[in-house]
């Protein structure tokens, strides 16, 4: 549309859009502000100017040992994503570049496993974890998170790989590249951006997972999602500290999320909307 909107209309749209954006963002903004208040300020009524104290952050860290759930979150999110990539990259590669008549069926079936409600398998998974000693261990939860995100990882990689034109691989073959050369010099460099996007989105999904992390951990392996959920009990009713804990839990992923908007659409719609 090569038409220049009038400046007045643009001002109107801009004001409206910013109001909407700020209203939607407000709960997060207010939490950030509150985390910088003292406890007294936090319950002293509506106030957008904090005293910029970091005491709540220090308190959360010293009283609740914030670093343990934080470390657990990092290990679980990154670990489960890497594990999923190890399994998914070869599978997606094979399906994208050597498709058979079953490929479509296999992909749809993989997607269907994602449709299974988590709660449907709560009982057996819970019992298996109890009996095998996997309960409240990082390894058990890492494998769980890997399994629930595996279909999305395969799908995302598949849609990225499929965009690599087959003629380029054929050109490499004509140019004398062996299968190893083809993967090393042609395919991998071209696939890296797609793999990175997939990784980013799955770290976000794993970080925010809040069903299995709550069900399968108590203290040792509890990541931030489970740790924060425990604040719902009365001991957590300290507004500034709660805000500080919340900010620390969402800040890293919020920033990663801002960089992955496009991939988010693609990943979560299984390539149906690009």
């Amino acid at each position: 549309m090569a038409r220049v909107a009038s400046t007045r209309a643009k001002v109107g749209y801009t004001v409206a859009a910013w109001i909407v954006a700020l209203v939607i963002f407000f709960p997060i903004l207010y939490t950030i502000i509150t985390s910088l208040k003292t406890e007294q300020e936090a319950i002293a009524g509506f106030n957008l100017i904090p005293s910029f104290t970091l005491s709540s952050f220090e308190a959360v860290q010293s009283q609740n040992n914030y670093w343990r759930p934080f470390t657990n979150s990092v290990i679980l999110a990154v670990g489960s994503t890497l594990l999923a990539l190890v399994v998914a990259i070869p599978a997606a590669w094979a399906m994208a570049f050597s498709p058979t008549k079953n490929t479509r069926g296999i992909l749809m079936w993989m997607l269907s496993t994602k449709m299974m409600p988590a709660v449907a398998v709560l009982v057996p998974i819970y019992l298996i974890f109890l009996r095998t000693g996997l309960m409240d261990t990082r390894i058990g939860l890492t494998v769980m998170l890997m399994l629930i995100n595996l279909p999305i990882v395969v799908w995302m990689l598949y849609t990225y790989f499929r965009e690599i034109p087959g003629e380029i691989l054929e050109a490499a073959r004509m140019d004398g590249a062996s299968l190893r050369d083809e993967i090393l010099y042609v395919l991998t460099p071209m696939a890296v951006p797609g793999i990175a996007s997939t990784m980013l989105l799955n770290v976000i999904l794993a970080w925010n997972e809040a069903f299995w992390t709550i069900q399968l951990t108590t203290t040792n392996a509890a990541p931030l999602s489970a740790f924060i959920a425990s604040f719902s009990s009365p001991q957590g009713l300290f507004w500034a500290k709660l805000s500080a804990a919340s900010v620390m839990a969402i800040a890293p992923i919020l920033i990663m999320g801002w960089f992955s908007q496009k991939q988010l659409v693609r990943g979560l719609t299984f390539g149906a909307v690009k």
């Binding site: 954006a21 700020l22 809040a210 709660l242 801002w258």
Partner: peptide
């Protein structure tokens, strides 16, 4: 700004709304 809430993990979202 608009996309941000999606990246807030469910327990935090619930706590923010419940308390703030």
């Amino acid at each position: 700004l608009i996309i941000s809430p999606f990246f807030v993990m469910p327990p935090v979202a619930a706590l923010i709304w419940k308390n703030m």
